[in-house]
């Protein structure tokens, strides 16, 4: 017995080291599973406040760029609204449902912290549950140029953490705009901060460099047709009937200052329907 105690004493520091490492890995693995990430993120009050102070200063340096982006976006929206195809009407038809309730709402937010150089990159934005961000569901986030990412669960009342597209776990249902062919997009290890990859895209669809890739709206986080990027490279995979498509992202992640969080007012219905519950009817007010 005494020997065991002596042994424990001798290796007590090593044991303590192992305990701390185990704790770290519990956190790491827990954080990969977004359900457990609720309490540990940069949306916590103190960190959010510090980041906001920092952004209050640095925002002035980007005012010109941010303005330009917003003006561009306005121009695009006007074009859509009054253009010859009158896309506004089509959008109105698809996005307003029969009960005349708006399906997708856009909450505007400011980016107060972001990273682009790690394997798992995040952004922090300055709105939270108080502004209508749902802390229990993922919500799509778009910038002036295109898709940015989606919110992490567990936002605080005034801050929300956003999983950037530049994140090794990021997945997005996308669509080749011309043909309507869907494909799943990931941020793979061969991608840099300007690109993402659709790993399996069927060869029977004609794709050309420069074609537009948009969201397919399958997850319910984004409406169908939000801009994602353009095709940069098409790489056939030997022995398979699929191509690997590198997409040049529309959003420049070093220059995202203003974003919109997309609230899908029918997400609950979608989830319940997909889960096979038959009480959907009762949920409609």
């Amino acid at each position: 017995m005494q020997r065991i105690i002596a042994l424990l004493k001798r290796y007590s520091n090593f044991l303590y080291f192992l305990v701390l490492q185990a704790l770290c890995f519990i956190f790491i693995i827990g954080n990969n599973n977004y359900q457990h990430a609720k309490f540990w993120n940069s949306s916590s009050a103190v960190v959010g406040w510090l980041n906001e102070m920092n952004t209050n200063v640095s925002d002035y340096f980007y005012l010109g760029q941010a303005n330009e982006d917003l003006v561009d976006e306005n121009a695009l929206l006007k074009e859509k609204l009054f253009g010859p195809d009158s896309v506004a009407y089509l959008q109105w038809k698809t996005e307003i449902d029969s009960s005349r309730r708006l399906k997708f709402e856009y909450l505007s937010a400011r980016v107060i912290n972001s990273s682009t150089k790690f394997e798992k990159n995040y952004l922090t934005i300055d709105i939270g549950t108080a502004a209508g961000v749902n802390p229990d569901e993922l919500m799509g986030v778009v910038g002036p140029k295109g898709v940015v990412g989606y919110t992490k669960v567990g936002s605080s009342s005034n801050y929300t953490e956003v999983v950037s597209m530049l994140h090794s776990n990021f997945t997005l249902g996308t669509m080749h705009e011309k043909s309507g062919q869907s494909g799943t997009m990931n941020w793979t290890s061969s991608d840099d901060r300007y690109t993402a990859t659709i790993i399996e895209f069927p060869t029977y669809t004609d794709v050309f460099v420069g074609d537009t890739i948009v969201t397919n709206g399958s997850s319910g986080l984004f409406p169908r047709g939000e801009l994602v990027g353009t095709v940069q490279e098409i790489e056939p995979i030997t022995g398979k009937t699929t191509n690997r498509i590198t997409v040049k992202l529309a959003t420049d992640f070093n220059r995202v200052h203003h974003v919109h969080v997309i609230r899908n007012n029918q997400l609950l219905q979608l989830r319940q329907l997909e889960a096979g519950k038959d009480n959907v009817i009762k949920q409609i007010p």
Partner: peptide, 23 residues
């Protein structure tokens, strides 16, 4: 060891990488 753990976790909270810096 304790201080190193606290240091890592503090930075992890900032950068959303909980556990990695601490480890």
């Amino acid at each position: 060891l304790t201080l190193a753990f606290a240091l890592g976790i503090s930075l992890d909270i900032f950068s959303g990488t909980i556990g990695m810096h601490a480890s």
